[in-house]
């Protein structure tokens, strides 16, 4: 599929000398949901700001729908909807008005039918004549999304869409994102909630300290990096591991009642069979076994840790 957003060697150094982006290259395919994961200050928002025209890149090239964001900024920005991280809204405006205003800013003729559709989608229709300042935090975030969707964007950026949002709204948001994907909208979201990336994304990119560490299909990433753990509970504490078991690199818990065996989830043979046989031969009785598959979160923590060290 063609890339709808193409970023080449993007660098951003702020006036104070802080290097927020250190040469990021990334192609985002039309119609996909890409989650950008990274700790606070990793450069996620700077990356989005550069694509959307809020920050001027120090160097590098960005195109949206084939249009360069600097030289053909009108064509490029018309395709983009942005939901910022901070809740920034005119407090005295009514919901309907502020959404209409956004549509106008993006050069679209007034279309109350579309605005109504967006407001209904976000359960804001009943609040259309309410002043923004009278809304709850979650509702305000919905208004931000309505503003971004008001001009029918092809690409939607959601910067930390569910930060500080209650469970119900989070579920609604996920549903809405999937709905937009059905309509063919490309969605880029940043988050540091791993479960969000796991629930929504087709691909996952990991950013740390201004560098894109990897971008991969979520399933492949989990497949490639996932490890499994086998926990073996012992009926009697084990003081010392017998030498015959050393090749399994077992971890013994402090109380000696648990052994942990780690193996690649997709290795050809797990080695569990021989391990259990060797345990038996070494005279170690087994009370219970449990397996645990590492989540995206574990993978992510490992990646960022490696990057720091």
């Amino acid at each position: 599929m063609a890339a709808i957003v193409s970023i080449t060697d993007l660098r951003k150094t702020y006036a104070g000398g802080f290097e927020a982006l250190k040469g990021v290259s990334l192609d985002i395919e039309e119609g996909e949901i890409l989650a950008l994961l990274g700790p606070n200050g990793a450069g996620k928002t700077t990356l989005i700001s550069a694509v959307c025209g809020i920050t001027t890149p120090t160097s590098g090239r960005i195109t949206v729908g084939g249009h360069d964001v600097t030289t053909e900024f009108r064509a490029a920005r018309s395709l983009i909807g942005l939901v910022p991280q901070e809740i920034s809204l005119e407090p005295f405006e009514k919901v309907m008005w502020t959404v209409r205003f956004s549509r106008g800013l993006f050069g679209k003729r007034r279309d109350d039918a579309h605005v109504e559709k967006v407001l209904r989608q976000l359960s804001l229709w009943d609040k259309r004549d309410t002043q923004v300042k009278a809304l709850s935090g979650g509702m305000k975030r919905r208004v931000l999304i309505a503003k971004a969707l008001s001009h029918e964007p092809r690409v939607l950026f959601l910067d930390e869409p569910t930060a500080g949002v209650d469970v119900e709204l989070r579920k609604d948001m996920w549903q809405m994102v999937h709905g937009l994907k059905q309509e063919g909208v490309t969605i880029i979201l940043t988050t540091h909630y791993i479960e969000e990336a796991e629930a929504m994304a087709d691909r996952v990119g990991v950013i740390s300290r201004g560098e894109l560490l990897l971008v991969e299909r979520k399933a492949e990433l989990m497949h490639r990096l996932a490890r499994k753990e086998l926990k073996i509970e012992l009926p009697t504490p084990l003081r010392e591991l017998p030498a015959s078991l050393s090749r399994y690199q077992l971890q013994r818990s402090d109380d000696g009642r648990t052994l942990v065996y780690t193996y690649e989830a997709n290795a050809e043979t797990s080695g569990i069979g021989v391990l259990l046989r060797d345990l038996h031969e070494a005279g170690i009785a087994v009370a219970d076994v449990r397996t645990h598959q590492s989540s995206l979160e574990d993978i992510f923590v490992d990646l960022v840790k490696e990057d720091v060290t």
């Binding site: 809020i54 900024f73 942005l82 910022p84 920034s88 005119e90 407090p91 800013l105 993006f106 503003k147």
Partner: peptide, 17 residues
Amino acid sequence: FPKFIGTIYELLSAPLS
């Protein structure tokens, strides 16, 4: 005011000169 409350992001990201 848009600068103060942050809504300037919308002016900057819109297809406007």
